[in-house]
Design a protein around this nucleic acid. Structure first.
Lengths: 139, 139
DNA sequence: GTTGACCTTCCAGTGAATGGAACCCTTATG
DNA sequence: CATAAGGGTTCCATTCACTGGAAGGTCAAC
């Protein structure tokens, strides 16, 4: 199979597939004309990669997961550990974003968003003292 | 003030401050010895940048925000629009991560995580048909 | 005068692709 | 036969926001 077909099947852009070959995640054969020639197993691997990346696993995680997948003797504990670490990363990221969101939406709500120059968003970023408000801690 | 002091005051690494000068966000003066010489206004700007970045605004957002901050005639609507677009980005990111989290934690829960090779996480990534389960749609 | 803590510039690398240029291969059609 | 369309190939640059490191200049204290 040529790269275009594999791209269609796996949902990955051809460019990404070439990149995955570059970094050693897949090793397609080559046809006489120099075209990459993908086996079923390559397509399967790429689809696996697509799903793992969609879950946010890093490329290095993916490399490990592929290795574990290929090793039918692996302990599921090894896989679970990678997944749990990733879950932690996700949780930390969500917490970080949620905090940003809270602060930001607070500021957005406080901003009139009209033609006038007065802007609580800029005031906060500049840490200006605002006499019309009481202590920030009271928020 | 030298870069080290500004780094301490603003909480930004010296390297980052130099980078911000590189891309034109601050323009400190220079002392006779070639050292950067920061005014109060530079320090203030950098602290502003630090807070804006902590809220996840992109560097280009920061550039715009600084420009608006400097323009005392700006309409708060301009600021609010930038903030609202960023809030949308954050919301989309949180939604994406939350979905990943749901799928992943589901898989992690299903995995025994012991010495045995059977692993629902890998099975899912590989889209293996699992005779012990009924259709995935039933999940 | 020498140590050590500063400061300087410049170059390279991060992650995970993505865009583009320049060129080759295959097949169909005028 | 020429050529045009639509594959494919490689290689280089760019993205974002820094961060690390090397090689060297400056300054204050001892």
């Amino acid at each position: 199979m040529n790269i275009g077909d594999v791209a269609d099947l796996s949902g990955l852009p051809a460019k990404t597939i070439r990149y995955y070959e570059d970094i050693g995640l897949v090793e397609p054969l080559r046809s006489a004309n120099g075209y990459r020639s993908f086996r079923q197993s390559d397509v399967h691997k790429l689809a696996f990669l697509g799903r793992a990346r969609a879950l946010g696993f890093t490329i290095e995680d993916c490399r490990s997961l592929l290795k574990l997948y290929a090793d039918t003797d692996r302990a599921s504990a090894e896989v679970k550990q990678i997944a749990e670490e990733h879950l932690d990363r996700i949780d930390r990221k969500i917490a970080e974003l949620t905090e940003m969101r809270a602060t930001l939406s607070h500021l957005v709500d406080a901003c009139a968003g009209d033609h006038r120059p007065n802007c609580p968003i800029l005031a906060d970023l500049a840490m200006e003292e605002d006499k019309t408000r009481t202590a920030r801690a009271a928020d």
